[in-house]
Nucleic acid binder design. Sequence first.
DNA 1: AACCATGCCAACCGCACGATG
DNA 2: CCATCGTGCGGTTGGCATGGT
Length: 247
Amino acid sequence: MKTVQEEIRKGPWTEQEDFQLVCFVGLFGDRRWDFIAKVSGLNRTGKSCRLRWVNYLHPGLKGGKLSPQEERLVLELQSKWGNRWSRIARKLPGRTDNEIKNYWRTHMRKKAQEKKRAMPPSSPSSNCYSASCNPTDVSIPSTGTREEIFYDTTEWNTPASTDQKSNQMEKNEVIYSMDDIWKEIAFTEGKYINPGFDAYGGVGCDFSCPPVSSPSWEYSSDKIWQLDDEENMLPTMENNLFAHHEV
DNA sequence: AACCATGCCAACCGCACGATG
DNA sequence: CCATCGTGCGGTTGGCATGGT
Protein backbone atom coordinates (compact mmCIF):
# COMPACT_ATOMS: atom_id res chain seq x y z
CA MET A 1 0.00 0.00 0.00
CA LYS A 2 1.04 3.49 -0.50
CA THR A 3 1.14 6.34 1.80
CA VAL A 4 -2.37 7.51 2.07
CA GLN A 5 -1.41 11.06 1.48
CA GLU A 6 2.02 12.21 0.84
CA GLU A 7 1.60 15.25 2.90
CA ILE A 8 -1.37 17.37 3.61
CA ARG A 9 -0.77 20.88 2.56
CA LYS A 10 -1.51 23.66 4.96
CA GLY A 11 -1.21 27.35 4.96
CA PRO A 12 -2.03 29.92 2.38
CA TRP A 13 -3.64 28.87 -0.84
CA THR A 14 -2.01 29.53 -4.13
CA GLU A 15 -3.82 30.83 -7.15
CA GLN A 16 -3.43 27.51 -8.79
CA GLU A 17 -5.02 25.75 -5.89
CA ASP A 18 -7.86 28.19 -5.83
CA PHE A 19 -8.45 27.69 -9.44
CA GLN A 20 -8.39 23.96 -9.07
CA LEU A 21 -10.81 24.07 -6.24
CA VAL A 22 -13.21 26.29 -8.08
CA CYS A 23 -13.16 23.91 -10.95
CA PHE A 24 -13.93 20.92 -8.88
CA VAL A 25 -16.60 22.59 -6.93
CA GLY A 26 -18.09 23.55 -10.20
CA LEU A 27 -18.07 19.95 -11.16
CA PHE A 28 -19.20 18.27 -8.03
CA GLY A 29 -20.96 20.90 -6.10
CA ASP A 30 -20.00 22.25 -2.76
CA ARG A 31 -20.94 19.48 -0.47
CA ARG A 32 -18.67 16.53 -0.95
CA TRP A 33 -15.61 18.18 0.38
CA ASP A 34 -13.73 15.11 1.25
CA PHE A 35 -14.33 13.75 -2.16
CA ILE A 36 -13.35 16.99 -3.81
CA ALA A 37 -10.23 17.16 -1.76
CA LYS A 38 -9.19 13.76 -2.97
CA VAL A 39 -10.24 14.02 -6.53
CA SER A 40 -8.85 17.43 -7.11
CA GLY A 41 -5.34 16.41 -6.37
CA LEU A 42 -5.02 19.23 -3.95
CA ASN A 43 -3.23 17.86 -1.01
CA ARG A 44 -5.68 19.53 1.28
CA THR A 45 -8.22 18.25 3.67
CA GLY A 46 -11.85 18.46 2.81
CA LYS A 47 -12.22 20.81 5.64
CA SER A 48 -9.62 23.10 4.31
CA CYS A 49 -11.23 23.08 0.91
CA ARG A 50 -14.58 23.90 2.30
CA LEU A 51 -13.24 26.71 4.33
CA ARG A 52 -11.42 28.18 1.42
CA TRP A 53 -14.51 27.98 -0.67
CA VAL A 54 -16.87 29.37 1.84
CA ASN A 55 -14.70 32.20 2.99
CA TYR A 56 -12.96 33.20 -0.11
CA LEU A 57 -13.91 31.53 -3.33
CA HIS A 58 -17.64 31.54 -3.18
CA PRO A 59 -18.90 33.68 -6.02
CA GLY A 60 -21.47 35.43 -3.94
CA LEU A 61 -19.04 36.99 -1.58
CA LYS A 62 -18.93 40.71 -1.46
CA GLY A 63 -15.53 41.37 -0.11
CA GLY A 64 -14.49 44.72 1.13
CA LYS A 65 -15.37 46.37 4.33
CA LEU A 66 -18.65 46.07 6.04
CA SER A 67 -20.95 48.93 5.34
CA PRO A 68 -22.21 50.93 8.28
CA GLN A 69 -25.57 49.28 7.86
CA GLU A 70 -24.01 45.89 7.95
CA GLU A 71 -22.03 46.82 10.98
CA ARG A 72 -25.11 47.90 12.77
CA LEU A 73 -26.88 44.79 11.78
CA VAL A 74 -24.06 42.67 13.06
CA LEU A 75 -24.18 44.44 16.35
CA GLU A 76 -27.86 44.08 16.61
CA LEU A 77 -27.90 40.44 15.74
CA GLN A 78 -25.00 39.67 17.95
CA SER A 79 -26.72 41.19 20.86
CA LYS A 80 -29.72 39.12 20.03
CA TRP A 81 -28.15 35.79 19.21
CA GLY A 82 -24.75 35.89 20.71
CA ASN A 83 -21.84 34.45 18.83
CA ARG A 84 -23.87 32.56 16.31
CA TRP A 85 -21.73 33.82 13.54
CA SER A 86 -22.92 31.59 10.81
CA ARG A 87 -26.42 32.46 11.64
CA ILE A 88 -25.69 36.12 11.69
CA ALA A 89 -23.86 35.75 8.45
CA ARG A 90 -26.93 34.42 6.83
CA LYS A 91 -28.52 37.72 7.43
CA LEU A 92 -25.78 39.51 5.64
CA PRO A 93 -25.74 38.51 2.05
CA GLY A 94 -22.26 38.13 0.75
CA ARG A 95 -20.65 38.04 4.13
CA THR A 96 -19.14 35.06 5.82
CA ASP A 97 -19.20 34.05 9.40
CA ASN A 98 -15.48 34.44 9.48
CA GLU A 99 -15.66 37.97 8.24
CA ILE A 100 -18.25 38.87 10.76
CA LYS A 101 -16.42 37.16 13.51
CA ASN A 102 -13.29 39.05 12.66
CA TYR A 103 -15.12 42.30 12.46
CA TRP A 104 -16.71 41.68 15.78
CA ARG A 105 -13.45 40.87 17.39
CA THR A 106 -11.71 43.98 16.30
CA HIS A 107 -14.73 46.08 16.88
CA MET A 108 -15.13 44.83 20.39
CA ARG A 109 -11.49 45.10 21.11
CA LYS A 110 -11.57 48.68 20.08
CA LYS A 111 -14.58 49.29 22.21
CA ALA A 112 -13.02 47.59 25.14
CA GLN A 113 -9.95 49.68 24.85
CA GLU A 114 -11.87 52.86 24.55
CA LYS A 115 -13.76 51.98 27.62
CA LYS A 116 -10.70 51.07 29.48
CA ARG A 117 -9.24 54.39 28.67
CA ALA A 118 -12.34 56.27 29.46
CA MET A 119 -12.85 54.42 32.65
CA PRO A 120 -10.90 55.37 35.67
CA PRO A 121 -10.00 52.10 37.27
CA SER A 122 -12.17 52.62 40.27
CA SER A 123 -15.12 53.80 38.37
CA PRO A 124 -18.08 51.85 39.55
CA SER A 125 -21.05 50.97 37.53
CA SER A 126 -21.54 54.31 36.06
CA ASN A 127 -21.00 52.81 32.63
CA CYS A 128 -22.71 53.87 29.44
CA TYR A 129 -20.12 56.15 28.14
CA SER A 130 -21.13 56.93 24.75
CA ALA A 131 -24.23 58.90 24.35
CA SER A 132 -25.70 55.88 22.79
CA CYS A 133 -26.00 53.46 25.56
CA ASN A 134 -27.32 50.73 23.48
CA PRO A 135 -27.24 47.03 24.03
CA THR A 136 -24.77 46.59 21.27
CA ASP A 137 -22.27 48.28 23.41
CA VAL A 138 -21.74 44.83 24.64
CA SER A 139 -20.89 45.51 28.11
CA ILE A 140 -17.72 44.00 29.24
CA PRO A 141 -18.63 41.68 31.98
CA SER A 142 -17.23 42.91 35.18
CA THR A 143 -15.24 39.77 35.44
CA GLY A 144 -13.14 41.11 32.69
CA THR A 145 -9.75 40.07 33.73
CA ARG A 146 -8.79 38.62 30.47
CA GLU A 147 -8.71 40.93 27.64
CA GLU A 148 -10.79 38.62 25.60
CA ILE A 149 -13.61 38.88 27.93
CA PHE A 150 -15.24 41.28 25.62
CA TYR A 151 -15.72 38.40 23.38
CA ASP A 152 -17.68 36.33 25.71
CA THR A 153 -21.33 36.37 25.14
CA THR A 154 -22.30 33.06 26.40
CA GLU A 155 -24.76 34.56 28.69
CA TRP A 156 -27.03 35.35 25.87
CA ASN A 157 -29.67 32.83 26.08
CA THR A 158 -29.54 31.89 22.55
CA PRO A 159 -32.48 30.19 21.08
CA ALA A 160 -32.19 26.49 20.64
CA SER A 161 -29.00 26.96 18.91
CA THR A 162 -28.23 23.90 16.98
CA ASP A 163 -30.74 24.55 14.37
CA GLN A 164 -28.16 26.22 12.31
CA LYS A 165 -27.52 23.32 10.18
CA SER A 166 -31.02 23.09 9.06
CA ASN A 167 -30.26 25.57 6.47
CA GLN A 168 -28.45 23.84 3.75
CA MET A 169 -26.00 25.89 1.92
CA GLU A 170 -26.30 25.85 -1.73
CA LYS A 171 -24.63 27.75 -4.40
CA ASN A 172 -24.77 31.07 -5.84
CA GLU A 173 -24.25 32.04 -9.35
CA VAL A 174 -23.54 35.65 -8.97
CA ILE A 175 -19.99 36.40 -9.71
CA TYR A 176 -18.48 39.07 -7.64
CA SER A 177 -15.00 38.76 -6.54
CA MET A 178 -11.94 36.66 -6.63
CA ASP A 179 -11.01 38.53 -9.63
CA ASP A 180 -8.25 36.63 -11.13
CA ILE A 181 -9.70 33.27 -10.82
CA TRP A 182 -13.02 34.23 -12.08
CA LYS A 183 -11.52 36.12 -14.89
CA GLU A 184 -9.69 33.00 -15.74
CA ILE A 185 -12.84 31.11 -15.66
CA ALA A 186 -14.53 33.61 -17.81
CA PHE A 187 -11.75 33.11 -20.23
CA THR A 188 -12.01 29.43 -20.38
CA GLU A 189 -15.72 29.48 -20.37
CA GLY A 190 -17.06 27.45 -23.18
CA LYS A 191 -14.25 25.07 -22.82
CA TYR A 192 -16.14 22.46 -21.02
CA ILE A 193 -14.35 20.14 -18.81
CA ASN A 194 -12.41 18.04 -21.10
CA PRO A 195 -13.08 14.42 -21.04
CA GLY A 196 -9.49 13.92 -20.30
CA PHE A 197 -10.39 14.75 -16.85
CA ASP A 198 -10.26 11.50 -15.12
CA ALA A 199 -11.68 12.04 -11.81
CA TYR A 200 -9.10 10.12 -10.01
CA GLY A 201 -6.16 11.31 -11.91
CA GLY A 202 -7.34 14.74 -11.19
CA VAL A 203 -4.10 16.44 -11.42
CA GLY A 204 -3.77 15.89 -15.05
CA CYS A 205 -6.76 17.98 -15.78
CA ASP A 206 -5.98 21.25 -17.39
CA PHE A 207 -8.60 22.92 -15.32
CA SER A 208 -10.57 24.35 -18.03
CA CYS A 209 -13.58 24.84 -15.94
CA PRO A 210 -17.04 24.22 -17.05
CA PRO A 211 -19.14 27.25 -17.19
CA VAL A 212 -20.46 27.13 -13.79
CA SER A 213 -23.05 24.70 -14.55
CA SER A 214 -22.77 22.01 -12.08
CA PRO A 215 -26.12 20.78 -11.07
CA SER A 216 -25.89 22.16 -7.65
CA TRP A 217 -24.96 25.58 -8.79
CA GLU A 218 -28.21 26.05 -10.44
CA TYR A 219 -30.20 26.19 -7.35
CA SER A 220 -31.64 29.37 -6.14
CA SER A 221 -29.17 32.05 -6.08
CA ASP A 222 -28.15 32.83 -2.62
CA LYS A 223 -29.37 30.15 -0.46
CA ILE A 224 -26.50 30.62 1.81
CA TRP A 225 -27.85 33.85 2.89
CA GLN A 226 -31.39 32.86 2.86
CA LEU A 227 -33.57 33.12 5.85
CA ASP A 228 -33.92 30.34 8.21
CA ASP A 229 -37.51 29.84 8.80
CA GLU A 230 -37.29 30.48 12.44
CA GLU A 231 -35.23 33.47 11.74
CA ASN A 232 -38.05 35.22 10.17
CA MET A 233 -38.81 36.42 13.56
CA LEU A 234 -35.88 38.56 12.90
CA PRO A 235 -37.11 41.94 13.70
CA THR A 236 -36.11 45.23 12.48
CA MET A 237 -33.36 46.33 10.35
CA GLU A 238 -32.22 43.68 8.08
CA ASN A 239 -35.41 43.24 6.29
CA ASN A 240 -35.26 46.78 5.29
CA LEU A 241 -31.60 46.85 4.73
CA PHE A 242 -31.41 43.95 2.47
CA ALA A 243 -34.80 43.74 1.11
CA HIS A 244 -33.40 44.81 -2.16
CA HIS A 245 -30.75 42.22 -2.22
CA GLU A 246 -32.97 39.44 -3.27
CA VAL A 247 -33.22 40.91 -6.68
C1' DA B 1 14.61 55.45 8.20
C1' DA B 2 13.92 52.05 11.60
C1' DC B 3 11.31 50.07 15.03
C1' DC B 4 7.17 48.98 17.47
C1' DA B 5 2.24 48.53 18.18
C1' DT B 6 -2.10 47.64 16.41
C1' DG B 7 -5.48 46.09 13.10
C1' DC B 8 -7.10 42.99 9.86
C1' DC B 9 -7.61 38.78 7.56
C1' DA B 10 -6.94 33.98 6.26
C1' DA B 11 -6.49 29.65 7.90
C1' DC B 12 -6.33 25.86 11.33
C1' DC B 13 -8.16 23.22 15.27
C1' DG B 14 -11.33 20.83 18.12
C1' DC B 15 -15.92 19.78 19.04
C1' DA B 16 -20.70 18.71 18.01
C1' DC B 17 -24.21 17.13 15.18
C1' DG B 18 -26.52 14.66 11.48
C1' DA B 19 -26.47 11.07 8.06
C1' DT B 20 -25.48 6.54 6.82
C1' DG B 21 -24.27 1.67 7.15
C1' DC C 1 -29.34 0.88 18.31
C1' DC C 2 -24.61 1.76 17.73
C1' DA C 3 -20.40 3.09 15.32
C1' DT C 4 -18.30 5.69 11.88
C1' DC C 5 -17.80 9.39 8.69
C1' DG C 6 -18.48 13.87 6.82
C1' DT C 7 -19.70 18.47 7.48
C1' DG C 8 -20.46 22.79 9.87
C1' DC C 9 -19.51 25.94 13.57
C1' DG C 10 -17.13 28.72 16.89
C1' DG C 11 -12.75 29.78 18.78
C1' DT C 12 -8.00 30.73 18.18
C1' DT C 13 -3.68 31.74 16.02
C1' DG C 14 -0.18 33.49 12.82
C1' DG C 15 1.26 36.56 9.34
C1' DC C 16 1.00 40.68 6.70
C1' DA C 17 -0.18 45.62 6.33
C1' DT C 18 -0.49 50.03 8.17
C1' DG C 19 0.16 53.82 11.30
C1' DG C 20 2.60 56.03 14.96
C1' DT C 21 6.79 57.22 17.46
